[in-house]
């Protein structure tokens, strides 16, 4: 038996919206420690990693570790049936091999309870070992600013160059019709820091050129949290982390560009 209760369905709705553009089907792992998933896009260029810790749930029970395969598009449609402020219960019975994942949504005044279930699927997916890494530069910035920059530069080109130095981070793109850039200056964190402030921890300047198509998908996680951190080292995958308050994170990894 697994049973996880989230105080607000909206968090889970936002998580699925953040993942479903990049990944259509995924295995979800339930363990004593919480719920997690790791999945690559079909081209193996990008990877997402979700962690929801057991102590972030209102209640959490997992008698035996289970891996359940879901179609994220179907899950997204199902979650549209939940009110944002509904309490959400996810449960599955593994007595005879779980073949469905069950959801119940209870309104804040407890006067409405709805129940839905999602058919599970067998998914044969590769998983990868992600080593712990020290990055040369970590940019911590507003997630809404990140979304805006990705949107703005997508109107100019197909790739963005991210150049981090001690002074700031510059996002730039160029295309057939022209070019554009946005510079965010490093701000020392001080009391009363604006939510839009950008800070950069850096050992040496780092530059990456990345396809905007993937970054647009990652930006779908912005509604989950105010901040995003971009972790960069030359010639290794870039990691974008969106922390989900009190409960976990979504991390996206994107392979660096290579000369074709």
């Amino acid at each position: 038996m697994i049973e996880a209760v989230l105080a607000q369905a909206s968090i889970f709705k936002k998580i699925v919206e953040a993942l479903k553009e990049l990944i259509s089907e995924t295995n979800i792992d339930f363990s004593e420690a919480g719920i997690s998933l790791q999945a690559m896009d079909s081209s193996h260029i990008a990877l997402c990693n979700l962690l929801l810790r057991d102590d972030g749930f209102k209640s959490y029970r997992c008698d035996r570790a289970l891996t359940l395969g879901v179609n994220l598009n179907s899950l997204s449609k199902l979650l549209k049936c939940a009110g944002n402020d509904d309490e959400m219960r996810i449960f599955a019975n593994d007595d005879s091999g779980a073949d469905q994942l069950n959801f119940s949504f209870e309104s804040a005044n407890s006067e409405r309870v709805s129940e839905f279930s999602l058919k599970l699927m067998d998914i044969d997916a590769d998983s990868v070992d992600i080593p712990d890494m020290d990055y040369q530069a970590i940019i911590d910035m507003s997630s809404s600013e990140f979304s805006r920059i990705i949107r703005d530069l997508s109107s100019v080109g197909e790739a963005v160059s991210i150049d981090a130095t001690k002074q700031g981070v510059k996002f730039s793109s160029a295309g057939d019709a022209g070019k554009g850039s946005i510079l965010l200056k490093h701000q020392k964190s001080v009391d009363g820091d604006s939510a839009l402030a950008t800070s950069i921890e850096i050992n040496e300047p780092v530059s990456h050129s990345l396809a905007l198509k993937f970054l647009s998908s990652f930006a779908k996680a912005a509604p989950l949290t105010d901040r995003v951190s971009i972790h960069m080292t030359e010639d290794v995958p870039v990691m974008f982390e969106f922390k989900i308050s009190e409960i976990g994170h979504i991390r996206f990894y994107l392979a660096p560009q290579i000369d074709d």
Binding site: M40, I45, Y253, A255
Partner: peptide, 14 residues
């Protein structure tokens, strides 16, 4: 023209 690489070149598949 540069192209996006694949993660398989960086992370070990298990």
């Amino acid at each position: 023209k540069p192209a996006q690489g694949r993660l398989d070149a960086f992370f070990k598949t298990s």
